[in-house]
């Protein structure tokens, strides 16, 4: 089992070189409202409420540097890439996505508790984090950061041997069913609500979607064997790649309120792409075995 689609080992250093100025620039943009003077283009004839005529590209540049840099660090070969380092990489990736969404779950729970208790200090804390959807900006790169930390920790913690941590999954029953159906219902309601404008409260259901998707992708198949498991780990890598490719593209093509939507949808794209690719692969496998058994 060799991991496919990796960058050469030196890309790690290039990635660090890109990400560091990216983070500094990103910090200046988000917290100091900085923008590089003159680094802009007149894209439209007139300004509207949601789209200004002149677009400054500082924030696009910062996000691109951070995401591209972290991707290079995360997915470059180790000095001696072999099947075990590949396995550790994929396990770390799955783990990182899990931890990322658990952090998100804690945040959602805190927000809910703060709202119920009307606790001012808790609400203030949540407001600071959720102000201007800042944490959805974090969601652009936090999964990669967690992954890089985990992967290199497992590789270098012990000089003599690698530390293999198995990924633990929830049992098929009942978690797969719950995760799947709750996700489908939420997606249906949220999309229908967007189309028909039923009520504002219903659109809040969207914030639960990452959690039900988490149940879905972290519970096993009915028969979870070695091959299904390998497919699962591969699919996560594909999902992360596709997710960030789309993100980098839309970063340069979509502006203003449109990009806010991208930020929101980005909360669920990794699990969604994963589910799509994983089931496509599993379907292909089942077709193949049928043909051969005839």
């Amino acid at each position: 089992m060799k991991t496919k689609y990796l960058f050469p080992a030196w890309a790690k250093y290039l990635g660090a070189l890109l990400a560091t100025p990216g983070f500094i620039l990103g910090y200046l943009v988000v917290y100091q409202n900085y923008s590089i003077p003159g680094f802009e283009l007149r894209l439209r004839g007139t300004s509207t409420l949601f789209l200004s005529a002149v677009e400054n590209f500082t924030n696009e540049l910062a996000l691109t540097l951070v995401v591209a840099g972290l991707l290079l660090v995360a997915f470059s070969r180790t000095k001696k890439e072999d099947e075990l380092t590949a396995k550790i990489r994929l396990n770390s990736l799955y783990w990182a996505i899990l931890v990322n969404y658990i952090l998100y779950a804690c945040l959602t729970l805190l927000a809910f508790i703060g709202y119920q208790l009307k606790s001012t200090s808790l609400n203030k804390f949540i407001d600071d984090l959720t102000n201007n959807l800042e944490y959805t900006v974090y969601n652009f790169f936090v999964p990669l950061l967690i992954f890089i930390g985990r992967f290199y920790f497992l590789l270098y913690r012990n000089k003599n041997e690698f530390d293999i941590k198995q990924v633990h999954y929830l049992p098929y029953k009942p978690y797969r069913q719950i995760g799947k159906w709750v996700s489908i219902v939420i997606m249906f309601v949220v999309v229908a609500n967007e189309a028909f404008n039923w009520s504002n409260a219903l659109s809040n259901l969207f914030w639960l979607l990452p959690l039900s998707l988490l149940l879905w992708i972290f519970s096993t198949e009915k028969t979870e064997d070695e091959y299904i498991n390998a497919t699962r780990l591969d699919a996560m890598q594909v999902a992360v790649y596709v997710n960030y490719a789309i993100l980098l593209l839309s970063n340069w093509l979509v502006y203003g309120i449109g990009f806010l939507y991208i930020q929101l949808v980005n909360m669920v794209t990794i699990p969604l792409i994963f589910i799509g690719w994983f089931y496509y692969r599993v379907y292909r496998i089942s077709r193949q075995t049928e043909v051969k058994s005839i």
């Binding site: 000095k79 072999d82 099947e83 075990l84 380092t85 003599n160 041997e161 690698f162």
Partner: peptide, 10 residues
Amino acid sequence: VGVSRQTINT
């Protein structure tokens, strides 16, 4: 066999 020493040890 073309793997790293740590892998053999593991």
